[in-house]
Amino acid sequence: MQFKLIINGKTLKGEITLEAVDAAEAEKKFKQYANDNGIDGEWTYDDATKTFTVTE
């Protein structure tokens, strides 16, 4: 399945997509990506659109 991450950071904004088996795997990958890029914020997930959002 394809999942999307919307980044609303203080210095980094944008979207990325990835393939994952389920939402838990996608969340783990997205949070690792955010951590690697210094993004720390409030996370939400919309199951209907398979979209994660992180807002700093």
Rank of each mutant, 00 (worst) to 15 (best):
A23G: 05
A20H: 08
Q2S: 03
V21M: 10
Y33N: 03
M1L: 11
L18R: 11
E27H: 11
G38N: 12
K50Y: 13
E15I: 02
E15R: 03
F3P: 00
E19W: 09
M1I: 10
V54M: 06
E27A: 06
D22Y: 15
E56H: 05
F30I: 02
T11H: 13
Y33K: 06
E19M: 09
E15S: 05
E19C: 04
A23I: 13
E15Y: 03
E42N: 13
K4S: 06
I16C: 03
N8P: 04
T55R: 06
K13M: 14
K50C: 03
V21W: 04
T17P: 15
F3K: 00
F52N: 00
L5T: 01
F52P: 00
D40V: 13
T51N: 06
L12V: 13
T49H: 11
D36S: 08
G14K: 12
K4C: 03
E42Y: 11
E19S: 15
W43E: 00
T55W: 04
T44V: 11
F30T: 08
A34F: 02
L5E: 00
K10A: 07
T49D: 03
T11R: 03
D22G: 09
T44H: 14
K28P: 08
E27G: 07
F3G: 00
A26L: 00
T11Q: 08
A34G: 14
T49R: 13
A34M: 02
K10Q: 14
W43C: 01
W43P: 01
A23E: 07
T53V: 10
I6Q: 10
D47E: 15
I39M: 08
D40R: 07
I16E: 14
V21T: 10
A20G: 14
L12K: 05
N37W: 06
A48T: 15
A26R: 00
A20P: 01
A48Y: 10
T55G: 02
G41K: 01
G41C: 01
A23N: 02
F30Y: 04
Y45C: 02
E56T: 02
K4W: 06
K29R: 06
D40M: 08
N8G: 02
T51R: 10
G14T: 13
V54H: 02
D36G: 06
Q32G: 08
A23Q: 07
D46M: 09
L18E: 12
A26Q: 00
G38W: 07
V54F: 06
D22K: 07
I6R: 09
K4G: 04
A24H: 07
A26T: 01
T49S: 10
K31Y: 13
V54R: 00
F3W: 15
A20N: 08
T11G: 07
E42I: 05
A24Q: 12
K29D: 15
A24M: 12
N37Q: 11
D47L: 10
E42A: 08
G41R: 01
I16T: 04
F52E: 00
K4L: 15
K13W: 08
T49A: 14
I39S: 02
K50A: 08
E15G: 03
I39W: 06
D40C: 03
F30Q: 00
N35Y: 15
G14S: 10
E56R: 01
E19D: 02
V54T: 13
K29P: 03
F52L: 02
D22L: 03
G9Q: 11
D36C: 05
A26D: 00
K13R: 08
K29C: 04
F3V: 01
G38V: 04
K31G: 03
I39K: 01
G38D: 10
Q2R: 15
T17F: 06
T17Y: 10
Q32A: 08
M1S: 07
V54E: 00
L12M: 08
Q2F: 09
E27R: 05
E25H: 15
T51F: 14
E56F: 05
I16G: 04
T51W: 12
D36R: 13
T11S: 09
V21Y: 08
A24R: 11
I16K: 13
A23W: 14
G9W: 15
Y33I: 13
N37Y: 13
V21K: 13
Q2G: 06
G38I: 05
G14A: 07
D40S: 14
D40I: 12
M1Y: 08
D22R: 07
I39G: 02
E56Y: 04
F3Y: 11
G14V: 13
K4M: 07
Q32N: 14
W43L: 05
K4A: 06
A34V: 08
E19F: 09
F3Q: 00
I7R: 01
K29V: 10
F52I: 02
N8E: 05
D46F: 13
G38P: 02
F52V: 01
G14P: 15
F3R: 00
T11F: 15
T49W: 12
K29F: 15
T55N: 12
D47R: 13
Q2P: 14
N37M: 10
D40Y: 11
A23D: 09
K31W: 09
N35C: 03
Q32W: 07
A23V: 10
K10N: 12
F52D: 00
A34D: 00
F30N: 01
E25Y: 14
D47V: 09
Y45E: 01
F3C: 01
T51I: 11
I16F: 11
T53S: 05
V21C: 05
N37R: 07
A20I: 03
T11V: 10
I6S: 03
Q32H: 11
Y45F: 08
I39F: 06
M1F: 07
K50L: 14
I16P: 01
D22W: 08
K50T: 05
W43Y: 02
T53M: 15
E42L: 11
K29G: 06
W43H: 01
F30C: 03
K10M: 13
E15M: 04
E56W: 05
F52A: 02
K4R: 06
N37A: 14
T17E: 08
A20T: 07
M1R: 13
K10P: 12
E19L: 09
T55F: 05
N8R: 15
T44K: 13
W43R: 00
